[in-house]
Design a protein around this nucleic acid. Sequence first.
DNA 1: TTGTAGGCGTTATCAT
DNA 2: ATGATAACGCCTACAA
Lengths: 347, 347
Amino acid sequence: MSEQPATQPRDADKRPTIYEVARLAGVSHQTVSRFLRKDPTMRPDTVRRVSHAVEKLDYRPNLAARSMRTRRTNRIAVILPETTSFVPTRLLSGAAAAAHDAGYLVDVVGLEGDAAARAERIGALLQPANVDGILSFTPLAENLERLAPSGPRVPIVVDGEYDDNMRARALLADAKAADEIVGHLADLGHRTFVHVAGPKTFASALNRRTEYEASVARRGLVSHAVVEGDWSTGSGWKAGREVIAGSPATAVFAANDRVAFGVIRGLQSVGVDVPGRVSVFGWDDDELGRYFQPPLSTVRVNRESQGRAAFQRLLSLLHGKQPAAPMDTAGLNQLIFRDSTAPPPTV
Amino acid sequence: MSEQPATQPRDADKRPTIYEVARLAGVSHQTVSRFLRKDPTMRPDTVRRVSHAVEKLDYRPNLAARSMRTRRTNRIAVILPETTSFVPTRLLSGAAAAAHDAGYLVDVVGLEGDAAARAERIGALLQPANVDGILSFTPLAENLERLAPSGPRVPIVVDGEYDDNMRARALLADAKAADEIVGHLADLGHRTFVHVAGPKTFASALNRRTEYEASVARRGLVSHAVVEGDWSTGSGWKAGREVIAGSPATAVFAANDRVAFGVIRGLQSVGVDVPGRVSVFGWDDDELGRYFQPPLSTVRVNRESQGRAAFQRLLSLLHGKQPAAPMDTAGLNQLIFRDSTAPPPTV
DNA sequence: TTGTAGGCGTTATCAT
DNA sequence: ATGATAACGCCTACAA
C-alpha cells in the first residue's frame, strides 16, 4: 500500500486521461471512450461507474488527441476585418455562440498587416487538419490565394456573399429593407436622393447600394449622388458638408448609423436642418440613435442572429448539404421610423 | 514505375505529412521535423532540399499532432463578456494581433447563457491540454470555479485586474487620468460633481469610480452622487434626466463616451444646456465624440495597445516570469478637451 | 456489452 | 549531422 499510488498517480500537474478514469471505474479505457461518445449500448451500471470516475477525477478530454484521431477538429476559424473602423462585434458573438451551441470552438484571426511569419501561421491554421471551416466577416478576394495556395480547402462562408443560385432569396431581406427605405422617403414626398455607401468590397454595402439605385430608378426618382464611404462617422460628416449640403437632395440613405450620425452632424454644422431640410435614414439601430438629436430612423437588424445564420450556413457546408438561405428572411430587418425623416421642405 | 506512386500518393483530399516531405527530399521524417524546428545543426544543403520539398508540397504542420507531443498548444482563450452593451472590440483585436505576433492562436469563448453542455465544452477548452492560457475581458469571479473546479489551472489574466503588489503602478494610468479630469473641471471652477459609473464588477470601472471619489475628496469638492450605470447610452440618459438635471451638480464624469452621450442628450432633452449649465467628460475617444453636439471632452485610450498589453501580461505568465505592469503608463491615456466642458454658470 | 490491437502526425530520446 | 524508435491521448475496428 505504498509502492503503487493506485488511482491518482498523476504528477500533480498532469490532467487525467481516459486510462486513469478507466482504472478508477474498473473498466477498459475505451469503455470510457464509449461513455464520452454517449454510446447507447452501455449497461446503465457501467455508465454510472464511469460517470462517477469522470466526475471524481474532473476528467476533461484532450481535444487535440481526439481531433487527431477523428480528423475533425470541431473548430472553425473566424476572419475579422483589418479595418479599424468596422468591427462586427455582434456578428462575432452571434456566430461564436451558435458555433459553441453546435459544439464548435472558434478561432479568431485578423487580417492585419502582412508579416510573412503571421501569414504562415494563419496559413497553417486554415488547413483542414487544423480547422473544419472558415467564416469570414470581411471580403476575402485574393487574400485567400495567398493564405492557402493549393491543396484541399475547407468550406468557407463569407458573410453577406452568396453563390448565384441563392443570391435572390438570401439577399432579399437587405434588398427589401433598402427598397422600403426609399419607398418610405418617397411616400413622404422626397424626389432627390443621396446614398452614402459602405466600401464596395463588402457584399452587404454593395447590395444596399445596388438596391438603392434600382429602387430609385424603379420609382422614377433622382439619385443626386452616391458617395463612397467607409462605415465611419467621418465619412458621413464629409458627405454631409461637401456633397449633400447645398445640393438639391432632400433625402439621404446612409450605409449605417455611424455614417448617418456623421451626415446629420455635418449638415447641422453648416446650418442645414434635419429633418426640416434634409431627411436621413440609417441602418443598424445603434442604441445612440434613440437618443440622438433628431432621433434616427433606422433599420433594426439582429446582428446576433445574422452571425448565427452565417454560422448555420457554414454548418450546412460542413455537413455536406447545400446551404439554405436564411428562411426567416422576412423578420430579419425591421424599419424603425423616428424623427430624422419627415416630409421635404415645401418649396 | 507503376506500383509505388512515389512522391504524391495523397488521396487527393489529404494534406501532406512530414513523411511525404521527407520522401520527396530524400531524408528521414524527423530531419524534416528538425527543419521545422529550425534546428541550426543541419547542413545547408539538407535545409535546401527539405525547404524545397516543403514548398513544393505546400506542406503545413498539423497543429493538433504537434501540441499533443509538445504539450503546448500555442493557443490562448479569450473570454468575452456576455453583456451585450459592452463589447471590447479593440481590446480583442489588439490582444489577438499581439498573440498572433507571438505565435499564438486565439480561441474566443463567450460567457453567454449557462447551458450545461456549453459549460462543459468551455470547461474542456480551458484545460491545460487545450489552451496555454486565458485572457479575460470580463470579470470572472466565481464563474471560474464553475468552469474548472479542480486540478491544474492555466495562467489567467483578467484585463484591468492586478494583484496587490503591482496594483499601484498598473492602475496608475487610469487613476491619473481620472484625477486629471476632476482637476480640469475644478480648474474651470466646478465644485459639485456627479460620476456615472460602470458596473462595479469591472475593475476598470471600479478603479475610475474610486479615484473619482478620492480626487474629489482630496480637493475639497463635493460629489453630489455616484450613479451606477452599465456602460450604455440609456443609463447615461437616465442619469442625466433623473439625477443630474435639477441638481446642484455642474460637472459630470461619465464612465465612457457612450454613457456621456446619453447624459448630454438626457440633459438637453429637459432643457439643460451643455456645457452652459453642466459640463460632461467622457472616456474612450469614440469617433462620434468629435462630431457630437457639443464635441465631447474625453480620454483617448489606445485600446489596441491596452489589448496588446493584456496579452503581454499573460505571455509573461506563460514564460513563468512575474508579469510586469505596463511601463509606458504615462502615455497610455491622453485627455482631450473639447466643447462639452466649460466653466460653470456664474450664479 | 465490453476488451484488445493499431494508428493518427508530430517531437523527444537515443543511437549512429 | 542524421536516422530509428517510442510516446503523446484518443478513437476506430475487430475480437471476445
